[in-house]
Design a protein around this nucleic acid. Structure first.
Ligand code: FES
Ligand code: FES
Lengths: 157, 157
DNA sequence: TATAAGCTTGACTTTTTTAGTAAGGTATAT
DNA sequence: ATATACCTTACTAAAAAAGTCAAGCTTATA
């Protein structure tokens, strides 16, 4: 019953982007990597997917980095997880869309209804958290982060 | 975002036990294995855990097999999944109890609250389905199963 | 316009987990 | 006795996850 680290890393990374969102400045991977202690090369993979799924855009060259495409209040954790995991179904059988391997007993299988409901509720739950929520909560829990963001700003001006 | 097959197999297997529950007869692994097309040796592992977690009891020798310890209406899918997966936490950090590797940033991490809530809702959801529910639903979806159970009875008398 | 910051792409490797096998045992109804 | 069925430990193959490597491409800016 585990998400891959892509999701947890991805959410943490996007919280950083959300915090920077108002400042209209892209955040380079290296910064997130340092801050969050996540392998930079691995983060690149993650951001690649996020970009392909249209959640972030990239700005190349010096001063570049990644930025959210939409307002953080408009992006839910569900979207992030879907972008990175591809699905939220707890079993193969109930793949929903075109996930290979159709299960032969699906017509007469009662347990599939459990898994379907479970997927529904997960979607609902993750849909309830926006990146703005989490960014706000982060600044509450870790005021140091706010300060750091300020400093970062100053160092650039 | 997947459960292991242990959970889906386990739930399916226990539905069979639930169907047989009223008839007060243990079900041997071989039968379930045949019916559900699940490797018998693998099922043994699964029933082992279910037994250790107190969900089923075993009767040895000819005419033996496994039977539910409690009434099917009193056993939820959540219990089954917990017995077989050990946990329902979507990430390592939020291990709840004594799952090794304490995460160092847990104090200041906002996303942990998402994962915690997610675990809560999964528990809630799976807790809402009892084995009796699923047994009943199975007989609705697959009347052949009811008939087969009857025949099985007759063949023994 | 040279440089370096930063993204892009695809393949590759390592580690961990999952899904099973294999083999030999023990209890018990008939 | 014997066949049925559970019990236990160990092993293995395959898949997935986590992470690395290498070589490029864009673009701001000095
Ligand atoms: S739908 Fe595949 S086993 Fe239930
Ligand atoms: S609690 Fe471990 S990273 Fe959030």
């Amino acid at each position: 019953m585990r998400l891959t680290t892509k999701s947890s890393y991805g959410v943490r990374a996007l919280i950083s982007l959300a915090i920077m969102y108002d400042r209209k400045r892209p955040v380079p991977i290296k910064d997130i990597s340092r801050e969050e202690e996540i392998s930079g090369v691995y983060l690149e993979q993650i951001f690649n997917r996020l970009k392909n799924q249209g959640l972030v855009r990239s700005i190349r060259g010096p001063g570049g980095g990644y930025a959210l495409v939409r307002d953080p209040s408009d992006i839910s954790v569900y979207e992030v997880v879907m972008a990175l995991e591809g699905s939220v179904n707890p079993v193969r059988c109930v793949s929903g869309k075109g996930e290979k391997k159709e299960c032969g007993r699906i017509a007469t299988c009662a347990s599939k209804e459990v898994w379907r409901e479970m997927a529904r509720r997960i979607k609902e739950t993750l849909g309830d958290f926006s990146l703005r929520d989490l960014a706000g909560r982060t600044l509450e829990l870790d005021p140091g982060k706010a300060r750091k963001a300020q400093l970062y700003e100053k160092s650039l001006s």
